[in-house]
């Protein structure tokens, strides 16, 4: 199975959030194609960092609005995830290009695991509320400023 492919078992029952997850996987797959051009790889890695900020804020807002009882734990999981992406980004930016070879699969596995272990648990709660549907870039900006 290709870890970069979306599958139905990953659905959290909300189109906006599902689309975010799909967008993450397709951004990751950009890393597979353009490894020769450092600037493109670097852009994609920075894009992933921004994505994570924006998407996590969207999810956390939704969980809060839904009174989801395990928000604290979920937020902590997001912190781990964010720290990992940041760490690989730093490693790459320091010139270790070889890391990029492992990145797509590694990062996609992290996401898949997070969706299945954590995101799916809020599906039922979030189904009753309206999820903020502003573009990811704006949410990333808001996350940075908050």
């Amino acid at each position: 199975m290709d870890v970069l492919l979306w599958s139905d078992e990953m659905s959290v029952g909300n189109d906006i959030l599902d689309n975010d997850h799909k967008a993450f996987l397709s951004s990751v797959s950009l890393l597979r194609g353009s490894r020769e051009d450092r600037m493109i790889v670097l852009s994609v890695i920075m894009l992933l960092e921004e994505y994570v900020d924006g998407h996590f804020l969207r999810e956390e807002k939704a969980m809060k609005a839904a009174n989801y009882p395990h928000l604290a734990r979920h937020r902590l999981r997001h912190s781990w995830f964010r720290a990992r992406i940041k760490a690989v980004s730093e490693v790459y930016q320091q010139g270790n290009d070889a890391v990029a070879d492992e990145l797509p699969d590694l990062v996609a596995k992290w996401l898949r695991q997070h969706i299945i272990d954590e995101d799916k648990l809020y599906a039922h709660w979030v189904s009753r509320i309206t999820v903020d549907n502003r573009p990811l870039g704006l949410l990333a900006l808001e996350a940075e400023q908050s």
Binding site: S43, M46, E50, A140
Partner: peptide, 8 residues
């Protein structure tokens, strides 16, 4: 490049 969402 590199381009980020924010700069764009």
């Amino acid at each position: 490049l590199p381009v980020t969402t924010r700069r764009m």
